[in-house]
Design a protein around this nucleic acid. Structure first.
Length: 563
RNA sequence: GCCCCUGUAGUUCAAUGGAUAGAACACAGGUUUGCGGAACCUGAAAUUAAGGUUCGAUUCCUUACAGGGGCACCA
């Protein structure tokens, strides 16, 4: 890549000036007027050499000029001693050609070739609603999966689901009171009913606790049948949602299967002193290893395994199922504390496996009223959100003369695109306050804006084909556009997003890119037989189309044919 | 009380220790002969406060203030 080439060039220059080169920083200046790349080496080295930064920069630039790099139009000294690199027209033209040629592979790299990666995300609980928090995890997880796949990794998607525990008992309690639920909504209601009874009614609380035991030991035929039917209904529902979101899983892990392997480990390492007994329970004292950690219970004084124990079981089971080199786990950040303690414990048990785990935590998708709650009833399910947005899109295309199938395609893709983009546009980790009026946008910094730009580009390309003008980079437009100066950066952006597990770098880049395409589009007539640079402009549009398509794909967003 | 995270335009978000802090929404004004106006252009508007490290701090450190989350038998 050009970046490496420039770095080497700086390294060479420093060498011939007899300056020791350590890490060379090369960045894209915020402002294109400062060039395509910029380096601060002179500022860094000047201190040790007791030289004036600008003088040193001039010397380095002199050396670089002497190298006569063909991709470089010019290198110059600016500001307090920055070296700014301006790339040549020929370089841009060539990179445009490359993007067109590579098409759907443009931006792909091999840095994770041969690596196995497991990504665990979504983690909804059967019997409960699939709410917007699960949606958030799903969108992020799918995007990260696609990004690391684009780096050449083999990726397996995993989903861990809580099919045992108090919530199942609450749902079954509700179901027994109101008649057997027939679908996911009714099970959601049953859960809400059982949940509030548990809080408000002491007698109900006792019954639910009893129920929980019966579910666990499967001693009651009626309860078993309710449980089995409810579990299946929930899981089928989840599949529908995954399909709609464009995601799928290779492995499903259930909490019910994790207690046994978890308990075995805890008991074994209790003997070895990693866990200890305290007030009749088996605990791990995290603060012994790190003052930021705390104590957590692994086996209750009743002898029951807790979530933490099952998590250990999950770590082991996952590793047995698929020998991943990197195991990414995506959870909400309210679990950061639990996860950190759990990982510390796992490090004492199997440091090698623990070292492969990478925790990515995201914020909450909250309602303006505050934290969403599945108890109080002001919970928003993923399906409700999707259908609300679909209605808006439908309204928007009401007057268009599209056939039914196309309308359906547009409604689905644009709605999902809008929702996914609103989640992925910001850095993973922060909360998103979901305000229906504002959160899902169709203009400006939004998913549909990107889709629209893509559709527009495709439409120009279709026209070019009609007119019989083929893309070519032979006759370059006289003026280099911002579009060209952004396009070649895509592979770098992908790399960074992969390194930091941060889809939002791609999202911000695509907005900038689309914006500069739209600007280019209004300024220039692209398809024009009178214009000898038209083939080049068509190549540019084609390069843009390929880039935005690949970028959207990495975010898990599809562009419709028309919109 | 202890621990973790976060404070950037009116609002929602960006900014790998770099140059004049970048978008979008909202607001004010504008874009008729060309390929899609879900678009384009122009304008006004921000780093919580005080210290420190640095040639250079939104970014790192300390303190204060404000918000969120978590702290033993729930998941």
């Amino acid at each position: 890549m050009i970046r490496e080439k420039l770095k080497n060039s700086i390294r060479e220059a420093l060498k011939s000036l007899c300056i020791a080169a350590n890490d060379i920083h090369l960045e894209h200046p915020a402002d294109l007027r400062f060039g395509d790349y910029s380096s601060n080496v002179a500022l860094v080295c000047a201190r040790e050499l007791k030289a004036r930064p600008r003088d040193l920069a001039e010397k380095i630039v002199g050396e670089i000029r002497a190298q006569k790099i063909k991709e470089l139009e010019k290198a110059e000294v600016a500001g307090s001693g920055f070296i700014n690199f301006f790339l040549s027209k020929e370089f841009f033209a060539e990179s445009v050609g490359e993007a067109v040629k590579e098409g759907e592979n443009f931006g792909r790299n091999k840095s994770l070739n041969g690596k196995k990666i497991m990504v665990e995300y979504t983690d909804p609980n059967p019997f409960k609603e699939f709410h917007i928090g699960h949606l958030m995890s799903n969108v992020i997880g799918e995007s990260i999966s696609r990004i690391v796949e684009f780096h050449g990794a083999e990726v397996k998607r995993a989903c861990y689901q809580g099919d045992v525990g108090l919530h199942t008992a609450k749902a079954i309690y509700g179901a027994m009171k109101s008649g057997e639920p027939k679908n996911a909504e009714e099970w959601g209601n049953a859960y809400a009913k059982g949940s509030s009874a548990y809080e408000d009614d002491l007698k109900a609380k006792k019954e639910i606790d009893e129920l929980n035991k019966k579910i666990y030991d499967r001693s009651d035929a009626r309860i078993n049948s309710l449980y089995d039917s409810g579990r299946k209904i929930s899981l089928d529902k989840f599949e529908e949602i995954y399909k709609k979101l464009g995601t799928h899983f290779d492995y499903y892990f259930f909490e019910s299967g994790m207690a046994k392997p978890g308990l075995e480990i805890v008991r074994e390492f209790l003997k070895k002193g990693i866990f200890e007994e305290s007030d009749g329970a088996v605990v791990f004292k995290g603060e012994k290893y790190d003052p930021a950690l705390h104590t957590r219970v692994y086996i209750t004084s009743q002898g029951l395994p807790t979530y933490e124990t099952k998590e250990l079981g999950l770590h082991i089971t996952k590793a047995e199922t698929y020998p991943a080199d990197i195991s990414i786990v995506i959870t909400a950040n309210e679990q950061d504390g639990v996860f950190a303690v759990g990982l510390e414990a796992f490090r004492r048990i199997d440091p090698k496996l623990a070292g492969k785990i990478k925790h990515v935590s995201h914020g909450l998708l909250k309602l303006p009223t505050g934290k969403m709650s599945s108890r109080k009833g002001n919970i928003l399910t993923a399906e409700e959100l999707i259908s609300d947005v679909e209605k808006l899109v439908e309204e928007k295309i009401k007057g268009r003369d599209y056939d039914k199938a196309l309308k359906k395609e547009i409604i689905e893709k644009v709605s999902i695109g809008a929702i996914k983009y609103s989640i992925l546009r910001q850095a993973v980790g922060g909360d998103i306050v979901y305000d229906f009026e504002k959160s899902i946008s169709f203009e400006g910094d939004s998913g549909p804006y990107l889709q629209y730009s893509c559709v527009r580009a495709k439409s120009v390309l279709a026209k070019a084909e009609e007119e019989g003008i083929k893309p070519s980079i032979e006759k370059i437009a006289t003026e280099t556009s911002e579009l060209e100066r952004l396009l070649y950066r895509f592979p770098e952006i992908v790399e960074r997003a992969g390194k930091e597990y941060s889809p939002h770098y791609i999202a911000s880049y695509l907005i900038e890119l689309a914006s500069s395409f739209n600007n280019f589009y209004t300024k220039h007539k692209i398809v024009d037989r009178e214009d000898e640079t038209s083939p080049y402009k068509i190549a540019l549009a084609a390069a843009f189309a390929a880039t935005i398509k690949n970028g959207l794909n990495l975010l898990g967003i599809q562009a419709p044919e028309k919109m």
